[in-house]
Simulated scan of single mutants.
Amino acid sequence: MSKYITIKDIANELGISKSTVSRALSGDSSNVKAETMKLITDTARRMGYHRNEMAVSLRKQSSHNIGIIIPEIVTSFYMTFISHVQTILHKHGYNVLIATSNESYIQERDNIEMMEHCMVDGLLISVCDKERNIDQYRRIESVGIPVVFFDRTVEGVEASQVRLDDYIMSFFMVEQLIRSGCKQIVHIPGPSRIRNGYERLRGYRDALEKFHIAYNPDLVLPPALSAEEGGQVVAEFIDKNIPFDAVFGFTETALIGAKNLMQKRGLRIPDDVRVCCMAGTTLCTLVHPTITAVEQPVEQMAEEACRLLMHNIANSGKHVEDVVLRGEIVERESTVKPTS
């Protein structure tokens, strides 16, 4: 017997035609007698038959599946986003397929092709590289699969996107550090391949300029995403004996690694150095001291991404929006010096 039970297997078991079995399993009670319908459905259940959803999708030209491609699963941001998306799409009859690129544009390309083979009705993508897969994004849209980019977005693709105002929020975060007395602010940037990294670095530089603080390239460290990378770049920086009084991180994971390293080196936070980051999640509340961060409106981002995607699925159109959301600076222990 084959691995999967088919309509032909059920027909052979009962000695009736495949068309009758097919009509019965699709609920066509007008063309199948009630007793025959019951016999067929009972036999299908006993034999372990499951409807071939891929075949149904081919007939209906819709799989009711939405693909989500994310760059990593270390932080809780993406899992929270996916949870909200699943809740929203489930109400509209959609299932969700999830793939992780692990910060590899090659893996992301494979994920896109896999989602296409699974006949998804649309894609939500947070990219790992702002340029490498532009051709794939354009191709997938050209074959009729709508795409909405979220969080990490791209330019030069005619598709909707939902993102944080990274420039403004990083500007405000650094401005807050400066107003609290910090003047030698270290920045742990994101990789240049990520659009957010450029915008957050630009916000950092412009905040310094506003307060007439000279930009010092020695205070901008090599890019870091993971906690291990964050600790490594800060360790190398400290060894240079360059004075600093604050650290502003591209993301919380790198900053937490940096924070842990600084504490091991005997630096007190926030007494000796204040630390904060962009894209904070609950991780920022699970360490000591808790970390000041710009937090993204994850639920709103999920709602907007789903709205845009479902609109283009329903209308088979090319409606394009650039939705820019405002984050919130949540001040915690890492930047607030205790009063004596």
Rank of each mutant, 00 (worst) to 15 (best):
S126T: 07
L164C: 07
E158L: 14
V127H: 01
D165N: 11
E155S: 15
I140C: 08
Q136R: 02
C128D: 05
V143Y: 01
D151A: 14
I125G: 12
G144K: 06
S126M: 03
Y137V: 05
N133V: 06
M169F: 15
R152F: 02
V157S: 03
M169T: 11
D165Y: 07
Q136N: 09
Y137P: 12
V148T: 07
V127K: 06
F149G: 04
I168N: 14
R163S: 15
V143C: 10
Y137N: 07
I125M: 09
V162N: 11
V148H: 01
P146M: 11
V162R: 02
R132L: 13
Q136V: 10
V148K: 01
E141P: 00
D135H: 14
Q161M: 12
S160I: 13
D165I: 08
E141Q: 15
G156K: 00
N133Y: 01
V154P: 03
Y137K: 07
I168Y: 14
K130S: 12
S160M: 01
D135R: 03
I134Q: 00
G144I: 08
I134T: 09
I134Y: 00
V157Q: 00
G144A: 08
G156H: 00
V148W: 00
Y167K: 14
Y167F: 15
G144C: 10
A159S: 09
G156V: 00
Y137F: 15
M169R: 00
R163Q: 15
F149P: 06
G156C: 13
I145Q: 04
I168A: 14
F150P: 04
R152S: 00
R139M: 12
R138M: 06
C128F: 04
S160Q: 08
S126W: 08
S142N: 12
Q161P: 02
M169N: 08
V154A: 04
I125K: 07
R138W: 05
R163M: 15
F150M: 10
E141T: 13
P146N: 05
P146Y: 02
E131F: 14
D129V: 04
V147H: 05
Y167C: 09
K130V: 03
Q136M: 12
D166E: 08
Y167V: 04
D135M: 13
C128N: 04
E158T: 05
D135K: 07
S142K: 08
Y137S: 11
D151W: 02
I168G: 13
Y167M: 11
F150A: 06
F150H: 11
V157Y: 01
E158Q: 10
N133W: 06
D165V: 08
K130P: 03
R152Q: 09
Q136T: 10
D135G: 13
N133Q: 15
E158R: 12
V127S: 06
D166Y: 13
R138S: 07
V127R: 05
I140Q: 04
C128E: 00
I125L: 14
D166I: 03
G144E: 00
I140R: 02
D165A: 07
S160A: 13
T153S: 06
N133K: 05
G156M: 04
V147L: 13
V162I: 11
F150W: 04
R152C: 06
T153K: 03
Y167H: 10
I125T: 08
R152M: 09
R138E: 06
